[in-house]
């Protein structure tokens, strides 16, 4: 595995590097990139190492009335220890916590998880359930935003253009009248750490004081070419009472989630298993929401 590496230290150095380099890849924590390059060596490749960029917009988190903005270089560890995320957005907290191991979480970044665009990306799945917005920076310094549901375009493919870099992620604040938030990330695999999701489900459901669902987000991972937002399943829940939802409605919700799945059979599981489990864990969110 041979490559050149350049390590810009500021945003302007980074943009200059993007403009200058012909054949490059971004690397931040490099937890996915190194594995990929080991499998598929890439000749004359330059890695633009993002981990040395000192820029709060890239590395920090900012809270506003609209919600949270997380820089693309915010690490999984940063997510895990952030109280705001832990209390307001458990799905994201738990997804980050379920990622690999403590050591890897120190370097793995949100940007890396999203831009790898793996169907089993855990942070990607949680952010999809949260209907996050991706902030994209061009080499010319222009910013555009893309809803996360449009960010993933295929297996390991994103809406990023050649001269663009992911800048940050915006997560909307929870609704003002939300009294209860049922938010979790369910990861199914054989090990309790160092595991790649065989199936995953993230959900973020907000209810009023009576338990009536006023906003719902649910996303499925490792079940389709990309992480997917289960739109009809979420719409189905609006107006229903989370605490008293009927068995039929639970199963209808699960069936609607399942309709977004088109899993493959691979070394980790068959398509049959993935579908079966996705259905089961989807209906389970009402049974033991915190389990």
């Amino acid at each position: 595995m041979e490559f050149n590496i350049i390590s810009p230290k500021t945003k302007s150095e980074l943009l200059a590097a993007i403009r200058r380099e012909k054949h490059f890849r971004f690397g931040a924590g490099c937890t996915d990139l190194l594995m990929e390059l080991r499998k598929k060596p890439n000749e004359n490749l330059t890695i633009i190492n993002l981990s040395k960029v000192i820029d709060a917009q890239f590395t920090g988190i900012k809270k506003s009335a609209k919600g949270l903005r997380l820089g693309a270089l915010f690490t999984a560890h940063n997510i895990v220890v952030n109280e705001e995320i832990q209390t307001g957005f458990s799905a994201l907290h738990n997804a980050a916590l379920s990622l690999a191991s403590n050591q890897i979480r120190q370097v793995a970044t949100i940007g890396g998880n999203l831009c790898t665009a793996s169907p089993s990306g855990d942070i990607s799945c949680a952010l999809t359930a949260l209907e996050a917005e991706c902030e994209i920076l061009s080499a010319a310094g222009k910013i555009r935003t893309v809803p996360i549901t449009s960010f993933f375009t295929g297996v390991r493919q994103t809406a990023l253009k050649k001269n663009e870099v992911l800048y940050g992620i915006a997560v909307s604040a929870n609704k003002k009248n939300a009294k209860n938030i049922f938010s979790n990330f369910i990861k199914v695999g054989t090990r309790r750490s160092m595991e790649c999701s065989v199936v995953s489900l993230a959900y973020h459901i907000q209810t009023d004081e009576n338990g009536k669902i006023i906003k719902a987000g649910a996303a499925l991972g490792a079940s389709a070419p990309t992480v997917r937002f289960a739109k009809t399943a979420c719409e189905f829940l609006i107006g229903k009472n989370f605490n008293t939802i009927s068995q039929k409605d639970k199963e209808d919700f699960a069936a609607k989630v399942l309709s977004y799945a088109s899993p493959i059979t691979d070394i980790r599981a068959t398509a049959w298993y993935r579908k079966e489990v996705l259905f089961n864990i989807s209906k389970s969110i009402f049974e033991n929401p915190c389990k």
Binding site: T190, S193, I267
Partner: peptide, 22 residues
């Protein structure tokens, strides 16, 4: 795991050795 004489999971990623958490 083997398929036609070849090992399909020659890595810790897919050879599921347990971790401290298990």
């Amino acid at each position: 795991l083997m398929n036609e004489g070849k090992i399909m999971n020659p890595n810790f990623h897919n050879y599921k050795m347990l971790t401290a958490a298990d």
